[in-house]
Design a protein around this nucleic acid. Structure first.
Lengths: 205, 205
DNA sequence: TACTTTTGACCAAACGTTCAGTCAAAAAAT
DNA sequence: ATTTTTTGACTGAACGTTTGGTCAAAAGTA
């Protein structure tokens, strides 16, 4: 105590920075979680800042201590989620997709589909709204393009007749399955579908 | 004019009513078209009644002469569009899907995808918002269920190992392709994908 | 005149955002 | 040990704006 006061003559801090930082981070996560849930369930425009604040157990005003705006809040949720989602593709970042990596990616995708359904919902909703999508497409485009290039190369290596077509078909199938799953999870045989997909694209050829 | 008044003795406002009706119908279609376009591009909540009115070339107040509310307007667009879309499935309404009918349905689906992209966009956006979807799910559920039942029966008849799984996979693939097409039509090889799909599901087995 | 159609000013409600001020907690001074 | 000072998380009333919806009046048509 006396030590500190000697050491911190200039820096007069009532609560330690660490403490503040910890409180802030926890609360930030709380807000992000509440916002994701509401954005996914009710849509971006139908979800008011007040509703998010209430769901996170804080005041409306405090929201603006943590996030610059409602848009900035959405942006952080969507972009960080997208990076999480696509991060399991080509995990060693060598630009080449092996059979094992593709199987791993499919497995991971279905795993996040179950564990993070809310994010997938939000993602699909955003992809359908050009006025909102503009906020993200720069961030998305690069990642998506590189994924499709690697997929194409994978199918070429595997001897498919039309690799470009096959890569787009594969992407569409994966998104279609995800779409149907989030629309009605209880009636979708996700495990069997996953097996079928792996059999069709990984084991064969 | 004198001619007309002679011809219409009993009906005090006869031919005029016809004219009015025709004008009304035309204007209604104009509004529906403008609204579909805006709802699809900007989203339901971001599209104001004023914007639709301006786009249709009429006043805001007149909108309420043609539609009870903004919600009723959306409802009519979505439901009538959905009926149009699914009407080409089992066209003779005998509850049984033939090979030719399935091929016809796939062709029709891809045709509407190209000619009615805006509707598909709106449909996907709505499917992702439970709070909005509630307005429609009663109307959708019956149709969707019957389609999947017929698909399942089709695959059973064709000798597929797991018809239920296969029908859900087929539905997901079709929606996935539609989703990717409306997201970026210019980069999607829709014709080749259609051929591949028909080859895979109609010609084989 | 009798009618329908059309307009845009108007309303209450809800929105995102701001901000003056409160508070508990901890450091510093006593 | 006690008191004072300093901090930033936190609140909610208030703001300007936009919204879906209404309505009296004007315009058009017979």
């Amino acid at each position: 105590m006396t030590e500190r006061s000697v050491l911190n003559l200039k820096n007069m801090v009532p609560r330690t920075e660490q403490q503040y930082e910890q409180i802030r981070e926890q609360k930030r996560d709380l807000i992000l979680q509440a916002a994701l849930e509401l954005f996914a369930d009710e849509g971006f425009h139908s979800t008011s800042i007040s509703k998010i604040a209430k769901s996170a157990g804080i005041s409306k005003g405090l929201m603006y201590n943590y996030f610059e705006s409602k848009e900035a809040l959405l942006k952080e949720i969507v972009i960080s989620g997208f990076i999480d989602l696509t991060g399991t593709f080509d995990p060693n970042h060598d630009g080449i997709l092996t059979t094992e990596e593709l199987e791993f990616f499919i497995n991971q995708t279905f795993e996040t589909l179950k564990s993070n359904t809310k994010y997938w919902k939000l993602y699909f909703a955003i992809m359908m709204q050009p006025s909102v999508l503009k906020m993200f497409e720069d961030d998305f485009a690069k990642i998506i393009r590189s994924i499709f290039e690697m997929l194409e190369e994978y199918f070429r290596k595997k001897g498919y007749e039309n690799p470009e077509l096959e890569s787009k078909l594969f992407g569409a199938i994966l998104d279609g399955l995800a779409f149907h799953y989030v629309t009605d999870p209880s009636n979708f045989p996700i495990e069997e579908v996953k097996k079928t997909l792996i059999n069709r694209y990984v084991r064969k050829h």
